[in-house]
Design a binder for these strands. Sequence first.
DNA 1: CGTTCAACCTGGGCGC
DNA 2: TGCGCCCAGGTTGAAC
Length: 295
Amino acid sequence: MPELPEVETMCRGLDCVVGGRIIAAEFPRSRVRPLAVEPGPALLCRRITGRTLAAVRRRGKRVVLELAGDDRSIDPLWLAIEPRMTGLMLVAEPPSPEHVRLVLEFDHGRRTVDRPRRVLFWDRRGLGTITLYDRAGLEAACGGVKLGPDGLEVTGVELASRLGRSRRAVKPALLDQRAVAGIGNIYAAEILFRVGIDPRSLCRRLPAEAWERIASAARSVLAEAVRFEGSSIGDETYRTADNRVGRFQHRHRVYGRADLPCLTCSQPIVRIVQTQRATFFCPQCQRRPGSRRRT
DNA sequence: CGTTCAACCTGGGCGC
DNA sequence: TGCGCCCAGGTTGAAC
């Protein structure tokens, strides 16, 4: 589920809690298997209780809560939540009680009215992760070695230098978070449609100019998707923190549109599988820049 | 080294 | 109704 635009929307939806103090943290018991928590549920709860939420930031597809100590002399900690496929950050009621993975209870702070008192992490499949970091740990896990430049700011030069010599097809390459952070299966397809490049094109055969177009499309598609608060597909899917559906799915040109007519040329959209993931594209509108054009 | 692949999970939808 | 299979927005570590 959540890619850059959805995670960015989650983060913005938690801004209303910034400044609050965590008075309780809990990993509810449930029939479903627990997800990965570092350094373990009990210790994590102990270490974050009493801290103040100083900021909410996004690192790639993670929500990162900056937790300040009571005292200026105490270093902050960072709680990184990785929603993976089905995770949601909520200030609203969860879709189901049994998949609530983490509950953070906040005091009222100075603003007493309209501030949510609880933040939930809800995750149906349980593939998500919750990790508490110190400064060095955060940098090691979410820093420039692990994550490439953010998709909202990536440049053609950066993409060309990171992927230009790769033997991979361009679409799976765009999912590599070390090359560019935040692009997932939906937005990779939408970006390549908008630049008219076949997802099977080999990276090393793309000219420098193609990387400029891809980077530009990545920035604009992701920014537009953020404005539309992400993509909600089907029931029990991505929601904003206050439980509204995203609206970018109405602007998808290829993702999920197998066999439907291309909105540009009316030819059917094709679904293929690349590295175990579905890829949607228009064979008419999307070409391989490195190969010969048919006449 | 670079790239691919099975595995981690739950649950909805579909064909039989 | 029920069963078995396929599918799903992601990432990791082992295997080629």
